[in-house]
């Protein structure tokens, strides 16, 4: 099972690193990353595999939202099913 992680916020050093280490801490495997900075704003989409998560997915979501709050970033983590269903027939 995969999830989509999106991060938007003011660019600073180490955003990708901090999100990636959170993933690694709970054994979420990063499959793909696309990242860009537009007008000093950082935007990243990360596809992660959550089969071997060491905590419940919902707790993982809480952890990342808390990380986002601490760093002033807007972080969303959503199960991939919602995108598959909404955008594919």
């Amino acid at each position: 099972m995969n999830a989509v992680l999106s991060v938007v916020g003011k660019d600073t050093v180490g955003i990708l690193a901090s999100v990636a280490s959170k993933c690694s801490e709970y054994k979420a495997n990063v499959i793909d990353v696309s990242q860009t900075v537009i007008n000093k704003y950082f935007a990243m989409f990360m596809f992660i595999n959550i089969d071997n998560l060491t905590i419940e997915f919902n707790d993982f979501v809480d952890e990342l939202i808390a990380l986002g709050k601490a760093k002033g970033l807007e972080i969303h983590v959503m199960h991939e099913d919602i995108f598959n269903l909404m955008h594919k027939i």
Binding site: S6, M78, N84
Partner: peptide, 12 residues
């Protein structure tokens, strides 16, 4: 696979 635009659309 879905693209970044589709992800942003859902979040928006």
């Amino acid at each position: 696979m879905y693209n970044n635009r589709e992800i942003m659309e859902t979040i928006k």
